[in-house]
Amino acid sequence: MNWLVIADYALLIFHTSLILFNLLGWMGRSTRKWHLYSISLTLASWFLLGIWYGWGYCPLTDWHWEILHRRGVRDLPNSYISYLLHRLLGIQPAATLIEVSTLLVTLMAFLLSLWVNFRKRLKEVKKEW
């Protein structure tokens, strides 16, 4: 099997797993701290690296696109979520819908992660006041 095919599937599995973890990792007690790190790094990539590379920049998407280009795949969307929906489910919603939904759901997961990670500390600070 060609190394590009292996790299394609490895990135597909890893990146999709990371996305699912970023959406749901705040739910498990044992994963909450790691979730906060992971989603914070994701948002930092989107907004800080995004200053230089464009809003929503993700190095994993960049690497995956490079692999796919080497495999001859062209006309890739701007959004990895759009790519996933098309590749896995065969659907292609409007780009704006995907971008707005992705941002809102990710910010909601980030806020939930902050809440579950810091709610005890917030209660203690509130009691001290």
Rank of each mutant, 00 (worst) to 15 (best):
M1T: 05
M1G: 15
M1Y: 03
W3S: 13
A7H: 05
D8M: 00
D8C: 02
D8V: 00
L12Q: 09
I13Y: 11
F14H: 00
H15F: 01
T16Y: 11
S17M: 08
L18T: 09
L20A: 15
F21N: 02
G25T: 01
G25P: 01
W26K: 01
M27E: 09
M27A: 15
G28A: 14
G28D: 10
R29N: 13
T31F: 11
T31G: 05
T31N: 08
R32S: 02
R32C: 01
W34L: 13
W34T: 08
H35S: 02
L36R: 07
L36T: 03
L36G: 04
L36S: 05
S38R: 01
L43E: 12
A44K: 00
S45Y: 02
W46H: 13
F47M: 10
L48E: 10
L48V: 09
L49F: 13
L49H: 04
G54Q: 08
W55P: 00
C58W: 01
C58D: 15
C58M: 11
C58A: 13
P59N: 10
T61R: 12
W65V: 08
I67Q: 08
L68Y: 03
H69T: 05
H69K: 08
R70S: 13
R70K: 12
R71A: 07
R71F: 00
G72K: 02
V73L: 03
R74M: 07
R74Y: 06
D75F: 04
L76R: 06
L76H: 02
N78H: 12
S79Q: 11
Y83M: 08
L85T: 03
L85K: 09
H86Y: 12
L88H: 11
L88F: 13
L88N: 08
L89C: 12
L89R: 07
G90C: 09
G90T: 05
I91S: 05
Q92L: 08
Q92H: 11
Q92F: 05
A94V: 03
A94M: 09
A94P: 00
A95H: 11
T96A: 15
T96R: 13
T96Y: 06
T96N: 13
L97N: 10
L97D: 13
E99S: 15
V100K: 10
S101K: 01
T102E: 15
V105G: 14
V105A: 15
T106F: 03
M108P: 00
M108R: 10
F110Y: 15
L111R: 07
L111V: 14
S113F: 02
S113W: 01
S113L: 05
L114Y: 02
N117K: 00
K120V: 01
R121V: 00
K123A: 14
K123F: 04
K123N: 12
E124R: 05
V125Y: 05
V125T: 10
V125P: 00
K126Y: 07
K126R: 07
K126M: 07
K127Y: 00
E128V: 00
E128Q: 10
W129I: 04
